[in-house]
Nucleic acid binder design. Structure first.
Lengths: 215, 215
DNA sequence: CGCGACCTTGATTACACTCAATGCGCGTGG
DNA sequence: CCACGCGCATTGAGTGTAATCAAGGTCGCG
């Protein structure tokens, strides 16, 4: 991992998320850290403390079972914030999916940042609970449809949608195998609902059809 | 729904959760509200604002798909708090499972309660993300085992465990059908892992076996 | 005591998983 | 610039777990 000490750089971000605070007060000076593909940002069991904002690239948050089964609970794209925990320990792993730039915010002991963190925590809670519905009650097509629509929305509806993650990541996020994800992509392509300009680049042709499928 | 205006009553709660604040400051006077079994506490789409603490009884938080499929994202037992939202709208339904007493906290506009709410929101976030692993990557036996261990822990390890909810509620929480839940209970009973003193009262005989199954 | 809601059990089906082989795309090195 | 190799993705065949459909059984309450 290589750490820049610049305090501000041009943002390659194409995120259209509602603007997040560019800095948190009272935050200590935040270096920009660079993580190559696959690099660990933090591990389950590690001490938590700072939190993190994606400048460019993408991050996966996940948990493992003893036998290696993996559940990705969230992806974080440019502009999004993660890493806050209920107690002082990380309950999940965080890894860079691709080359990723991350701003790390640390706080003076005693600083009260709850006012800034609460909306982010509540947003994450709502997202997680909505994802429970997908995993608990939707079939493979519905899951993939919901995922594509979510990615589209988080990229501001810009076409095509860029998927920074592999089919395996998508499977581990949706509770499906890589093969099932692939088959659903193929079916959606055959039906003319989506078009794949490349493996990681999806164009939604029939938005309404996808919406219907997602419920 | 019937509302008492007593500001303090004896608590039938048997929860051994870490003590939650008995009152939030600066909260307005909180009446105790009584909800009979099945009563709606709030609905998806309703305006949010106050939040809620279970005094006795149990609550289910859920979401519906258009065709009626239901996912329960959380149960809340005595002592637990729920109802806070990312924006001013409820994204879920909340219903009393049984006869339930709930304290409703409302706040003066402008009051900053983020310091008190943040730990609760973060706890909920961790719980939801852990449940994602169960729904995404565990089979029926593992799901039921994890559920029973969770209920046991939240009741302080007291035996037997009281299940305030129906098999259907359990199924909708675990992403299973009522039949599958029933079959798994039967299998666990036949194996001598649990004992059912009644339908809603479970004794964990082989705690270790259950723990092994839950992962 | 009888009814109705809830639960259990059985038989069959279906959807996604597993195992296996092939295909594609990209980076590297000749 | 092309060929090779490797990682990732697709496609196919067969299997298995949980869903569905259906029939009883049990519990609790009026």
């Amino acid at each position: 991992m290589h750490t820049y000490t610049t305090s501000r750089i041009a943002l390659p971000s194409r995120s259209s998320q509602p603007a997040l605070p560019e800095a948190f007060e009272p935050a200590l000076l935040q270096p920009l850290s660079f993580f190559p593909a696959g690099a660990e940002i933090y591990a389950q069991g590690e001490k938590a403390g700072p939190f993190y904002q994606v400048e460019f690239g993408a991050v996966r948050i996940y948990r493992l079972l003893a036998d290696g089964r993996r559940q990705i609970s969230a992806f974080h794209l440019a502009g999004e914030t993660f890493g806050f925990e209920a107690d002082s320990t990380h309950h999940f792993f965080a890894e860079a999916i691709n080359a990723t730039g991350i701003r790390v915010f640390r706080f003076a002991t005693g600083a009260d940042i709850s006012r800034q963190l609460l909306p982010l925590a509540l947003k994450g809670l709502t997202r997680a609970q909505e994802h429970l519905l997908v995993l608990g009650r939707q079939n493979a097509i519905e899951r993939v449809a919901a995922f594509l629509l979510d990615m589209a929305e988080r990229q501001g509806g810009l076409q095509p949608i860029e998927l920074p993650m592999s089919r395996m990541d998508i499977g581990d996020y949706l509770g499906l195998t890589i093969e099932t994800v692939s088959r659903v992509f193929s079916r959606l392509k055959d039906k003319g609902v989506i078009r794949l300009s490349s493996l990681r680049s999806v164009e939604i042709v029939k938005h309404d059809a996808l919406q219907d499928m997602s419920e």
